[in-house]
Design a protein around this nucleic acid. Structure first.
Length: 287
DNA sequence: AGCCTTTGACCAGCG
DNA sequence: TCGCTGGTCAAAGGC
């Protein structure tokens, strides 16, 4: 066993250096290795634990929340220029506090954990449950992760989970730090994937909605995101439109390639293959 | 059978 | 040198 903090034969990419990668690059001009995607239907409303065991009936009561919580970002992602606008807006909003602009993928992954009540009258999330839903799923970015450790850090207040990418020869690791109440407060990616995003068929998610959301690719670069970013984001929504659910469903019906912006033919093939089953899932969730 | 999570132990860095 | 902290390993067990 090599053990300990010196496991990296070569020093892992410093978080800071990877953060230098422009956020927009990961979204607007995806690099050859497809960026991670969100697969999160199974994530919402449940405490940290084995999400693989969820059944659709378990998720049904949360469906509306899921759709509402995500539709804002979905609409952003549906328009690349708009993503740019959103990115700029976010950057400007956080200019005073040196915030790293968060890829939408991570927003999607974390937003459900944010207390929706904090959104106040911001519109996009208005009318949603005021309860705080919890999200924790290592595969939320579309890659397959294996948890290899967990530590309680920061005086026992913040359990931190350590994940490895399960792909062979891929050394990407992900640290997920939770707050005392179980919310994700920080996700740190270490390294870059040396492979393409696994087929959605392989991604373990509970429901088609999550698979669709998986097409909202984010930067694979190491990044640090704080929950406060998302809270700020929710207080300053880019889009506020009650018809977003409908638009979301339209996007779902149309397929997700247009949203993914991926040029990967295999991925597209996978998308095509899974479209029918996803549509079925959507209908089930929204019944 | 394969993959995953859990969890205690180990190790390195740092003050 | 010592203790603390963070990161990782690997066995065990579950699904």
């Amino acid at each position: 066993m090599d053990g300990g903090g010196g496991l990296w034969g070569a020093p892992p990419p410093a978080v800071e250096s990877l953060l230098d990668a422009p956020f927009s690059d990961g979204w607007l001009t995806p690099p050859p290795p497809p960026p991670p995607t969100l697969s999160g239907t199974a994530l919402f409303g449940y405490p940290q634990g084995s999400f693989e065991n969820f059944h659709e009936q378990d998720l049904a009561p949360l469906t509306a929340q899921v759709v509402h919580a995500k539709c804002t970002i979905l609409n952003q992602a549906a328009s690349l220029p708009f993503v740019q606008m959103a990115t700029s807006a976010l950057a400007s909003q956080h200019a005073s506090c040196s915030v790293n602009v968060t890829p939408l993928q991570e927003m999607l992954a974390l937003q459900p954990k944010i207390s929706i009540a904090n959104t106040g009258s911001t519109g996009a999330l208005q009318g949603l449950s005021t309860s705080s839903v919890t999200l924790d799923r290592p595969a939320a970015d579309g890659y397959n992760w294996r948890k290899y450790g967990q530590k309680v850090v920061k005086g026992g207040e913040c359990p931190k989970s350590y994940y490895k990418c399960t792909h062979m020869n891929c050394l990407v690791r992900k640290n997920v730090e939770h707050s005392a109440d179980g919310r994700i407060v920080q996700i740190i990616y270490r390294g870059q994937h040396t492979h393409e995003r696994p087929s959605k068929k392989r991604i373990k998610v509970c429901g088609g909605l999550s698979e669709h959301l998986a097409d909202f690719s984010g930067s694979v670069d190491t990044s640090i995101r704080s929950q406060s970013d998302y809270q700020d984001y929710c207080r300053n929504p880019i889009v506020s439109n009650d018809t977003m659910v409908g638009r979301l469903m339209e996007n779902m019906e149309d397929g997700d390639e247009q949203l993914a912006g991926s040029s990967d033919s295999q991925q597209e093939h996978d998308d095509e293959e899974s479209t029918s089953s996803r549509s079925k899932d959507y209908s089930e969730y929204n019944q």
